[in-house]
Amino acid sequence: MNVLFGSPALHALVLGVGIVSALLGVTSYFIWFERKFAGRMQSRIGPKHVGPYGLLQPIADAFKLLIKADITPDTADRALFNLAPLLAVCVALLSLAVLPLASGLVIADLDVGVLFFLAAGALTVVPTWMAGWGSNNKYALLGGMRAIAQSVAYGVPLVLAALVPVILSGSMKLSDIVAAQAGGHWFALWPPGPGLGAGVLFVLASLAEGNRIPFDIPEAESELVSGISTEYTGMKFGMFYLGEYVHSLVVAALFVTLFLGGYDGPGPDVLALQLLWFVLKVSLVSVLLLWVRWSYVRLRSDQLMTLCWKYLLPSGLLLVAASAVWVWWTEQGGSR
């Protein structure tokens, strides 16, 4: 394993602390950007009064959340209720461990990296259900149950979509997947069809797994008050919020890694340039996701399930089969 600082443990520690704190900082300004962006999409202004262009709004929000009353309902399961927001953030951060930001700049380059982030993604439902059950509130409970149904359903197309780059590159190691796309052979562009289709499938399934609009039926303000976060106040609510945004950034980063060549880009293979390409691509994908988020209304529960089982799952199977055929065909062509 490529180690930058002394022992592997030290390497993981330094990089982990660095990346996580950088990501948390980026996330708070990502939220500011989203509010500005969404405002303009709806002919509003967005944050304006705290600092120039509302730039200090995230800090003001954090202070506001900190001074709010911290309420635990009498009937709530205290342990589950208080642990859930913490876990929500931790689970969202887990996938970062295997994400190569630049050549060699990865906390732990696991041989089963794809498996790891799929597992971490599937875990996001655990804090959600803990919150739903622990709150002892009917809206939270309904939200939690919906979250489970949604997560179980969308886990399947997510796995199928992530399988396509694995088949194409022949490895489950994320750095190998990026290396297989080096020189502009991004899976979203080549082979035509399976790569791009799997990319779209991956984004849809990840959004659904992270409960983002238009798949936010566990929260569903118009039906469930606030769903799983109904009983949460102050910073505990803030952590759910943070977890959701971290998750959406991580989804964008994973999409870039799996389908857009990761840190691959024109120019020499310098660490700073690779990092720049990676950040640029992730920003672009995040903005696209925001665009989608603020253009659509929430799907109904049954529409969500229909979309998953009737359309995404069969197309996922097709894409996996197509990419397998493609790999077999190119190998035949190579020997010819």
């Binding site: 303009r40 002919s43 202004i45």
Partner: peptide
């Protein structure tokens, strides 16, 4: 998608 992206270029009405 077209509606939202078109709004992005307009002035806010606040």
């Amino acid at each position: 998608l077209r509606t939202t992206i078109r709004n992005l270029g307009r002035k806010p009405i606040t």
